[in-house]
Design a protein around this nucleic acid. Structure first.
Lengths: 247, 247
DNA sequence: CGAGGGTTTGAAGTGCATCAAATAGTGTGG
DNA sequence: CCACACTATTTGATGCACTTCAAACCCTCG
């Protein structure tokens, strides 16, 4: 585990950070300025714990690259994974509504560049700007739908279907058919946990999925012969259908 | 199924409606006035469908009494229950963020008095008032935590533990021990679905729970001998602990 | 009383978990 | 470049929890 490197960003925030901020909070240049003031980019190795549930929160985070796992755990160490977040995502910001306390723990699962942003600025900005609050509401509503779907998947889909659904989301090819190549972005063990199953089950379920639809699997790289066929297999047990735009 | 009765509420909204609105949206008297303007209270019998997923939304709803199930279903009729909402709750308001379309269906599961509120008023109010938007954000954040917990429960708790957790929530006796009497507010079949299990499983799991902790069960009425003991049984497989105030 | 829905019980099946062990893959130092 | 150590992944065997299908029971209400 390499040591963490820091880099100050305050004055010259990279464009992608501003874009990410703007996308999530829907705010203009001036607000962006205030939000990214005091921001610091840090490189973290896989395995690094950013914060744990219950920690006092002074920052929230933006993922420039890599993957971050958010989770909670029981006294005897069993983990409940909340989400595994990709590049471009923001996390830890909901501590604002939880007495400045993180409601979950966060761990780097693939080497990552993380921007640490001051919570205080967000707090004052959100109180000052209705636009910001509304954008955040919209984001929260989207997340809410996602979580509802998550519960649904666990109830209605079996293991191979859940994997199929996961692959479809990875291949976010909206609509068009034909072969698609994808690469699992993190450990199969972690994918399994993300989908609420054991690694062994994942391995076997992936094999079953391969029997049911045309897939070529070689390690972490997977070729889907027909998105259409995969969607039929997975989405038949789901209330929304590929490309999951809902009604 | 008795016919639905209507009653106009615009000018003289009952106190509990205003309280409910104020609690959820954290708004003052004047805003309350604008929100409840055009509201109509309706009595609905069990089984009545209020709207279905995908319907164009012009209203959101407040539950004066009774219980409402929100859910989605697959093409072949399998249901995924999103939540079962008690008196005092508001639902359908998130359609605001989904192109004025309900993202789930809603059905009365116990005879209910429902207040229908105009979405347009909420929309303009939320755009005008930061206080309102912030309160809503807070509510959304709370819901988000709840849903995260839901996913967790399904992953980490077994059937008897989930039932125990459900009973604990019903008996929201925070802290104090001693015998508590509760009454299941709706069908056992529905409780089962809410907890993501089959009615048969529920029946058997409740029996197993009865063996594990001191319970007296007679139909829908349940006496918990020791909240403490029940909490130990259920919360041992959970990342938060009774009375679930989290850290 | 009798019909019908909710609930329980029984028997059998299935899917996933668990435990154990083999195999593949990766990075290390020689 | 190879051997070793370590981890990720797969495979096998077995067990358990929940589901499914079927039937009995119970309760309520006309």
């Amino acid at each position: 585990m390499l040591p963490t490197k820091k880099e100050n960003l305050s004055s010259d925030a990279p464009a992608e950070l501003r874009t990410g901020i703007a996308r999530y909070f829907g705010c203009g240049i001036e607000a962006q300025d205030r939000l990214v003031d005091g921001a610091a980019s840090e490189h973290h190795p896989k395995g690094k714990i950013l914060f744990i549930s219950g920690d006092k929160a002074k920052s929230y985070f933006y993922i420039r690259s890599g993957w971050v796992k958010t989770f909670r755990e029981t006294l005897d160490g069993a983990q409940a994974i909340i989400d595994i977040l990709p590049t471009g995502h923001i996390f830890g910001e909901t501590s604002l509504f939880e007495d400045d306390t993180y409601p979950y723990s966060a761990e780097i699962v693939e080497d990552a560049d993380i921007v640490r942003l001051p919570l205080a600025a967000l707090k004052s900005e959100i109180h000052a700007s209705n636009v910001l609050a509304l954008s955040m509401l919209k984001s929260m509503a989207r997340y809410r739908r996602e979580q509802d779907k998550e519960v649904e998947h666990r109830t209605l889909q079996n293991a191979p279907q859940r994997i199929g659904c996961f692959l479809l989301r990875l291949s976010n090819q909206c609509g068009s058919d034909g072969p698609v190549h994808i690469h699992l972005p993190y450990d199969k063990t972690l994918v399994a946990a993300r989908l609420g199953m054991q690694p062994e089950t994942f391995s076997r379920a992936l094999a079953r999925l391969k029997d049911a639809v045309d897939l070529k699997i070689k390690g972490a790289s997977i070729e889907i012969e027909s998105i259409q066929q995969l969607a039929e297999f997975s989405c038949s047990a789901c209330t929304s259908h590929f490309p999951c735009k809902d009604k």
